[in-house]
Amino acid sequence: MDKERPLAIKTQKLSLWYGTFQALFDVDLEIRGGMITSLIGPSGCGKSTFLRCINRINERLGYVRTAGKVHVLGNDIYAPAVELLQVRKQVGMVFQRPNPLPLSIRDNVLFGYRIHNRDKGRLSKAAGDEIAESALRRVLLWESVKDKLGSPGGGLSLEEQQKLCIARLMPVKPAVLLMDEPCSALDPNGTEAVEELIWELREEYTVLIVTHNMAQARRASDECIFMLMGKVVEHRSTGEMFVTPRHKETADYIEGRYG
């Protein structure tokens, strides 16, 4: 495990309640930057909930209560002075079902950029083209869409849509990418392509990915966090966890005895 990398996300005693139901119990995690960390565990173990704390999307539901601290890049994102929109800018999210906006491919990519750079005047056609091209190249989508940038994003295949959803985060220059089962709506080929892409994005981004797919966690992440009933059971390098799990629960889950 590479201990030299700086911390990207750090949580201290993070607990979360949906009404009276407690979904997270004192979660202490340190997630290093520039690598892929996968969150695994059976349904309802709190891994998606944890993910959604990192960009504060949980609190849109009025009945959610959080306690503890979440630091992203050294800043406490639950501090009162924090502007939610700045958090969302630094922490991008990719959903289970690809959700391209009902706009053209080009406008999908430029949407976030336009919102965050309105004070810099109108985006010129040339500058927009350049931003769109570099983002689409980054997600390995450019070649297949370069001749139809004006057509709707929803018309692409699911795999391409998911890549588009990743591409539209790029121009905003986030530091952290949260992915909530990004491949579960895709076929095996799509899964492979998107996994490859996520692997490509290491180094530049800190990627936190929730997955149900053991094989995916194993082949496409540097570190692995196993959660159970709202608590972290084990957090180690992926290679070690899959070969010599420390806890019996982890071993049982990895071997598919429950989940």
Binding site: I57, R60, R88, G92, L101, F111, I115, R168, L169
Partner: peptide, 25 residues
Amino acid sequence: PMAFREACWNMGATRWQTIRHVVLP
């Protein structure tokens, strides 16, 4: 669809930006 709104909010769009650019059209 709700997914459009979520996509916008997650990119840091305000409610009004979401309404104006995505929901209303």
